[in-house]
Design a binder for these strands. Structure first.
Length: 219
DNA sequence: ATCCCGAGGG
DNA sequence: CCCTCTGGAT
């Protein structure tokens, strides 16, 4: 099976069975999504959604967060990973939004990455979800799932996987494909124990097919 | 023990 | 390239 056929099979399956695919983070505007995505690093969406209501009640927008001290934010995000770093990033991000971007979330990956705490992955998420750009954010799930399925080949970095995926996915499907791969990684293609018995993508999966040749259980 | 929608710095 | 930051869940 060619890589092109893997892409077509996987994308067709998702389009038919999961026409709607969205982030599971709770937010009400671009600023809040930016905050939520920064908090989601090495932390589950569920835990982020648990703490953002209190955070957004106290700091609902960039100006209020810009006026805060990192220590105040730290107390509210304590249960997420890296609270010290994230508290500094969030306040710094809000201050740069207010001071340098006219309190508007920038609309390009390049500008977004200038914000403290915003790397390529977070910038791609905002570009895709908020501005509807064909940006593929490669997080731990996308990186792993793409490699297992055989959608990426020989990629050692998220950036390389991103390039390969964008090169093979129709522009209008890139944003959806991002969420499809995330959700598939979160609930089916688990990092430690992929649930191949429950997986609808095995007809196009490189990992499943190579495993089936050497091991009848094909886990 | 290993993983969760990473980023920044050396 | 590597390392560190760091808490919660399984």
């Amino acid at each position: 099976m060619t890589r092109k056929e893997r892409f077509e099979g996987v994308l067709e399956h998702f389009q038919r069975n999961h026409p709607v695919a969205e982030t599971e983070l709770d937010y009400q505007d671009p600023f809040q999504l930016l905050v939520a995505v920064i908090l989601s690093a090495q932390c589950t969406d569920k835990r982020v959604n648990l703490i953002t209501p209190a955070l957004f009640e106290q700091f609902p927008d960039a100006p209020s967060l810009a006026a805060a001290e990192p220590e105040e934010v730290f107390a509210l995000i304590r249960s997420c990973s890296y609270p010290n770093n994230k508290a500094k990033h969030l306040v710094g991000m809000a201050r740069m939004l207010v001071n340098d971007f006219g309190n508007q979330v920038p609309d390009s990956v390049e500008a977004l990455q200038k914000l403290p705490g915003v790397g390529r992955k977070t910038a791609n998420v905002i570009a895709s979800v908020v501005f509807d750009l064909p940006a593929m954010a490669v997080d731990t799930h996308v990186f792993r799932v793409a490699a297992r399925l055989g959608l990426s080949v020989g990629s050692k970095t998220p950036l390389e996987t991103e390039k390969q995926l964008v090169a093979h996915i129709p522009q209008e499907l890139v944003a959806k494909a991002h969420h499809w791969l995330i959700l598939h990684g979160r609930y089916v293609c688990l990092a430690r124990k992929p649930q191949c018995a429950q997986c609808p993508l095995t007809p196009w999966c490189a990992h499943f097919q190579s495993a089936a040749q050497t091991d009848q259980t094909a886990v």
